[in-house]
Nucleic acid binder design. Structure first.
Lengths: 229, 229, 229, 229
DNA sequence: TATGAATGAGGGTTCATTCAT
DNA sequence: TATGAATGAACCCTCATTCAT
């Protein structure tokens, strides 16, 4: 509303203006989602936060899921862009000083952990977001994802033991799976957190995401099959 | 209703009868869930399937989530019971013939895959089930889980490279995380499946759970840190 | 539905149209309530009666209670509007011919009795309606009530023995209390009615609202403290 | 439960024992009701508080309403027993020193106000309790009430201006109506209380029960019709 | 393009009461 | 008489989405 009242509101006519409006909604969604659970985020609230009417977000995103899928795409893009150069350096460094704190797993784990939005969006991807989109949206998303993954996959591939074509891609997928599972496990509900805290014997269930993710990734790399059966 | 109308219905007075009634509800829930998504399963439908009144399941389970958590507990128990002896043998076999099809990862992957109920329940655990339970239920669940995991963890531990105390538990947790992620990824929604099928370039996204899980588990084991930094 | 099917249905865009839609819902609620007890009135039924969708009433009234509170406000407003001129005349007449049938108590009792909706809403006010509203709704209601009461209170005040500032307001409040109690007592449930009818000794419990209300109001006026202790 | 475990629990066999068990349930209901709203009081909770099984209260009271009607009967009985002698004295005193603080209205108001259970039960009588009882229960209740009222009515009658036969009864009924209304009005919900407190202009709505009740009763007595039209 | 009024599907849960034991 | 397992009715409200304007 603020924007509208301040007279900054304009009708999006050109392509550029449309992109702006689109981002405006996306940013609003990110802000609202940073405060509330996905289920608790209403499209009305997003619209309000964006300073547009309730129906407006639907002019840019077919469904709530499509909107958040877009948000996730953006986040993944940013993350991967940050990862590529680091991956190269890290991989090199790793070759030089095995086990150093500057290892690739460490970089991956810490950089993901530094993206609260992404860590909350990732576990929603398959469980929620991909559940209510149409084939075309799915196609667009997967293609964009494949493109985004390509350079990172290529980098990883060069540094995987006995790296074969496609290994980089596979590695990312398994990394992804691991991330989804570990993120869920390391962010327990209030009740579970309380339960774990009340009994020392349950301490092993209380995971530290970065630590676990780094360790598991490291094992995944070290144990990467260097030859096929 | 069938049972009731057939006159087989009795009030559960003894502890034994109550356990039976409890299982009756649990079985009904499993049946209904095998057909519908978790969200689509209504307590009313479960009651109907169990042949009891709508309120009866609530005598045995405080909430829908508690009911399904119980189902998951049962499934995990069954699976682990099946896993313990196999794990021992497999580990032994593995030591003998490295890389054989009789490998531990293969057993784990195939036995999990053979439990459709469990594969659908596992991704719900942290994302849904643990979200609407009270502390006490959480505590009971985690304790039971810890107990169930103990023997399997012990077995695994003996066969992990440089296995240290707690490594077996850690291994199970990472396996769990991997399973959650890979299960979600390998069971795409209809729209995503269609999208993946329509573009050969997206084929790498089309995962085979058993294959992926086995490969990732193998890497996890092989790459298990045999010494600490 | 009738309206909608008849093609008369339009979206309320202007403020005026919105008021119309609001009244449409209010009228529907009045109609449904005239047939069923408050508890038996469902919002779904009100919506249906209004010819709108189940969610539509919630665009205009936050809760069922807020809706009926609004109905009550309207009824009180109408009643008081009818009362003001009458009160003046009646008071005058009363001064002339004390004890005449044209007395103020008689007018009040009969005019209230002639409003079936109001007589059923009044006993719900404190017991039900004010129980499930938020502070803001309460504030708005009480303020509106105070405004509505002002002119009537002023009129009454002039004709109360030794009328002091605030006495008119007090008088209305006590009248209100009396009305609530007598309305409840004179509208027994079917079982109570049957019981009273079956034993002549219980006849005194069978109250005639108008008669009782008039008598009690008369006493209240006559006995109004003309001087303070 | 405490009683049962302590071995104090006995099966009610004689009439006397049955009365005891009955009172035990009644006392439990009073205790639970003193903490929670009528709707929030569950029969299961009452049974638990009484140390009996869930079905047991139903052996003594046909419905929840019948149980609370009984409680009300007991409370009214106690109150009236306390009122009779006081009424006599007060009436006498009043004749002597008109307007003294020892007035009948004052006694009535303060003694009622001193019975929290009764003040909460009274507004429920017609609105709730009499709604779900059968004719016989209603008959029994009204007859008992008539008996209880008789002596008080007789006393009041002697001191009402121009007291005619039945006036005492009428007076109690109007007192009752006034009490119901004023009790409701002086015990606003949290939201209403907050609203009234936030706007000084609404202060007149914030009633003090004792003060209002006393004043209104006084007026009722003073204005009592000494001759009929 | 933007608006915002209107839609309508959707279900877990409580609890007074019953009745087999 | 007492138990407690079983019953089953009953419902407000949210909110993603649509579509007339």
């Amino acid at each position: 509303m603020a924007d509208r009242e301040a007279g900054k509101f304009i009708r999006a006519r050109s392509e550029n203006e449309k992109d702006l409006r689109r981002d405006q909604v996306l940013d609003a969604a990110a802000r609202v989602f940073s405060r509330d659970d996905y289920e608790a985020v209403t499209m009305a609230r997003v619209a309000e936060e964006a300073g547009v009417a309730k129906g407006t977000p639907y002019r840019y995103f077919a469904t709530k899921e499509a909107l958040f899928l877009e948000l996730l795409t953006r986040e993944i893009g940013d993350w991967f862009a940050e990862l590529v150069p680091v991956a190269d350096e890290a991989a090199v460094a790793e070759a030089a000083i095995a086990g150093s704190g500057a290892s690739l797993p460490g970089f991956v784990a810490r950089s993901l952990s530094a993206r609260p939005l992404l860590t909350r969006l990732l576990p929603l991807l398959h469980a929620v977001l991909e559940r209510n989109i149409d084939v075309e949206t799915a196609l667009r998303f997967k293609r964009r994802l494949a493109e985004t993954m390509a350079p990172v996959a290529a980098t990883f591939e060069r540094h995987l033991p006995g790296g074969r074509a496609g290994d980089g891609f596979s590695f990312i997928l398994r990394t992804h799976a691991l991330a989804i599972g570990l993120l869920q496990m390391s962010r327990p509900s209030a009740a579970v957190k309380a339960a774990l805290g009340s009994d020392p014997a349950l301490a092993p269930f209380d995971l530290d995401f970065v630590q676990e993710f780094e360790a598991a990734l490291g094992a995944l790399i070290r144990g990467w099959p260097s030859e096929h059966p």
